[in-house]
């Protein structure tokens, strides 16, 4: 029996082999390419034969004039996005939870879900059109109320608000699912006990709903905070133009430009690595803090 079972495990190993090899080839081999950051890469010699450069490219990164700007832009954009955007899905879920008619709830939820299925390219394009200087509807409304047209794309000041608010538009519905699921599993006896104590609906939200979903909130907060420096490249890159570089140039777009466009492979890898390392450190710190404060953590 034992021997037969051991033999059977071979089938499990065989089944796992292909997905495992995929992960190794496409996720782990590139990780070894990170050594590029410490080498003077030349295409002819390849990664292994290229000479070591030590921390040359990191020193270069820390001394280029644009470094403080891209670091600040990255942090401000994601921190502001987190602070402003994080509460929305929670608020939305708490409100949905108050809608007792299942059909109405389902219908409204479906509507808020729609933007999740629209591609980033299309979302940015809609932003361009709506906020267009010449004929965008936002400027039409401003002019209607007697104001003068605002050139939203002509300077850096509007990049962050437009980016963050449209981000809420894109994902609040989808992100609220997590909290709606957590709310649906709240023990009903808690509500009954609250009703006996004469609690109002608002008090139930405050003293039953929120404490019950707090662990879920903390975990998503830790995860989002851990991604503080890894804002999606796609949307920022699409929204970028020379007029808003002062606020829109972030680490990810800089990596793309120096790496793919200018082929400074070693330097660009160093920038990307710096980004990942900071991310990991922030994730570990936030996880530790969350563990200390609320007893909830990722690992």
């Amino acid at each position: 029996m034992k021997v037969k079972k051991q033999k059977r495990y071979i089938q499990l190993y065989l089944l796992m082999a292909i997905p495992f090899v995929f992960v190794v080839i496409f996720n782990y081999v590139p990780m070894f390419g990170i050594t590029l950051a410490f080498k003077d890469y030349s295409i002819r010699k390849g990664i292994i034969a290229s000479p070591w450069a030590g921390f040359k490219y990191f020193r270069q990164l820390f001394t280029i004039p644009i470094f403080p700007t891209i670091l600040k832009n990255t942090i401000v954009l994601s921190l502001a996005g987190l602070i402003i955007g994080f509460p929305f899905p929670i608020l939305l879920a708490l409100c949905f939870n108050e809608v007792k008619r299942a059909r109405v709830k389902k219908f409204l939820q479906t509507l808020t879900f729609a933007p999740y299925f629209i591609s980033t390219v299309v979302v940015v394009s809609i932003l361009f059109q709506m906020f267009s200087y010449r004929y965008g509807v936002v400027n039409s409304v401003i002019k209607f109320f007697g104001g003068s047209a605002v050139n939203f794309w002509g300077e850096g000041g509007f990049f962050r608000p437009v980016y963050i608010l449209s981000g809420i538009w894109q994902t609040a519905g989808y992100s609220s699912i997590l909290y709606i699921a957590a709310l649906s599993s709240v023990d009903t006896s808690l509500y009954e006990a609250a009703a006996i104590d004469g609690a109002t609906r608002f008090q139930k939200v405050l003293h039953v709903d929120i404490p019950c979903i707090l662990p879920t909130i903390v975990i998503s907060l830790v995860l989002s905070a851990g991604n503080i420096l890894s804002i999606g490249f796609e949307k920022v890159y699409l929204m970028q133009n020379p007029a808003n570089y002062t606020t829109s140039e972030i680490i990810a777009t800089y990596v793309y430009k120096t790496g793919i466009e200018q082929a400074q492979f070693s330097f660009s890898t160093a920038v990307g690595l710096f980004n990942s390392v900071v991310n990991c450190i922030v994730l570990l710190i936030v996880n530790k803090v969350a563990d200390k404060i609320s007893g909830t953590s990722l690992f």
Binding site: Y28, P30, I34, G259, I260, S276
Partner: peptide, 29 residues
């Protein structure tokens, strides 16, 4: 649950959720 390499494979997969090679190393590969 009886798959002997379960924990190892889980770890290998989990790491990919938090860490990757980055744009350029992946591109060159």
């Amino acid at each position: 649950r009886e798959f002997p390499a379960r924990n190892f494979v889980t770890l290998i997969f989990t790491i990919t959720m938090f860490f990757g090679g980055g744009t350029i190393p992946t591109y060159l590969w």
